[in-house]
C-alpha cells in the first residue's frame, strides 16, 4: 500500500551511460552579475554531451582553411607580450601588450587596448587608442582617443574623436579625408640642452 509504484522515468540518453564526473563550469562575469545576492551559490554542474567522445585524430588543415583562419579577424598582441620592431601589413591589429618600434598598417585599423603601451609612431587607416602611446598618430581615416587614453605625440587625421578623460600632449592637425598624411608638423620637441646651446649662440 505504501509502496511507491514504479513510475516511468523520463528517458534521457545520459541515463543509459555511466554517470559523468562532475565538471565545474567557469563562471562568467555576466553570470555573476545576474545572480541575486540572497540566493546561495550552488555549484553548477555540466551535463556530459550525449554524443560519444570523438577519438583524438590529428586534423590536417587544408590551405583554404588556413587562409580563412588568417583572414578571420584582427591580429592581436595580447597583454603580457612585448614586441620590438616594425609592424607592417594590411590587416587590423589590436595591441594590448607592450610594443616599441614602428607600426604601419595603411589599410588597417590599429586599436591600442587599455593595457596596451606603445612607444612607436602609428600610421594606419583608423586608429583607436584606449591605452598609452608615445609617438605620432597618422591616420587617413580617423583617430579616436578613448576615455582611458594617454597620448604623447602629434595627431594628424581628417577626423578625430576625443572622449572625456582622454589625455593628449601634442598637437592636432587635420588633413583632408583620404589624403595620405605627410610628415608630422612642428612643434618638434627640442631637448633642453639644444635650446640652451641655441640661446647661447644667439647671445654671442
Amino acid at each position: 500500500m505504501w509502496r511507491k509504484p514504479n513510475e516511468a522515468k523520463p528517458s534521457s540518453p545520459a541515463s543509459n551511460t555511466p554517470a559523468p564526473a562532475p565538471m565545474k563550469l567557469q563562471e562568467t562575469p555576466q553570470a555573476a552579475s545576474m545572480k541575486s545576492p540572497s540566493v546561495s551559490a550552488t555549484p553548477v554542474v555540466a551535463v556530459a554531451p550525449s554524443t560519444p567522445a570523438v577519438p583524438d585524430v590529428p586534423v590536417v588543415a587544408s590551405p583554404a582553411h588556413v587562409s580563412a583562419l588568417m583572414n578571420a579577424g584582427p591580429s592581436t598582441i595580447s597583454a603580457g607580450l612585448k614586441i620590438r620592431g616594425e609592424i607592417t601589413g594590411t590587416s587590423d591589429l589590436i595591441i594590448d601588450g607592450d610594443t616599441q618600434g614602428k607600426i604601419r598598417l595603411t589599410n588597417g585599423c590599429v586599436t591600442v587596448g587599455p593595457n596596451g603601451r606603445v612607444t612607436a609612431d602609428i600610421d594606419a587607416r583608423d586608429i583607436v587608442i584606449n591605452g598609452t602611446v608615445q609617438g605620432n598618430l597618422k591616420a587617413s581615416g580617423s583617430v579616436r582617443l578613448g576615455p582611458s587614453s594617454h597620448v604623447e605625440g602629434s595627431v594628424l587625421t581628417p577626423r578625430i574623436g576625443i572622449d572625456d578623460g582622454a589625455r593628449l600632449r601634442g598637437n592636432v592637425e587635420m588633413t583632408r579625408l583620404g589624403e595620405t598624411p605627410s610628415a608630422a608638423p612642428e612643434p618638434a620637441k627640442v631637448p633642453a640642452a639644444v635650446r640652451v646651446a641655441v640661446a647661447n649662440a644667439r647671445e654671442e
Binding site: D164, R167, L168, R169, G170, N171, V172, P187
Partner: peptide, 30 residues
C-alpha cells in the same frame, strides 16, 4: 598656432580646427 594648457576636449579641438587654427594641448597641471 594655439596651445591649450588644460585637458583635451573634443569641443575645444573642434572650435579651433573649424577656424583653421592649429591646436596643441598639454595638461600641465596633471
Amino acid at each position: 598656432r594655439v596651445l591649450d594648457l588644460g585637458p583635451v576636449w573634443q569641443s575645444t579641438i573642434n572650435f579651433f580646427i573649424e577656424r583653421g587654427y592649429r591646436i596643441s594641448t598639454e595638461d600641465l597641471l596633471r
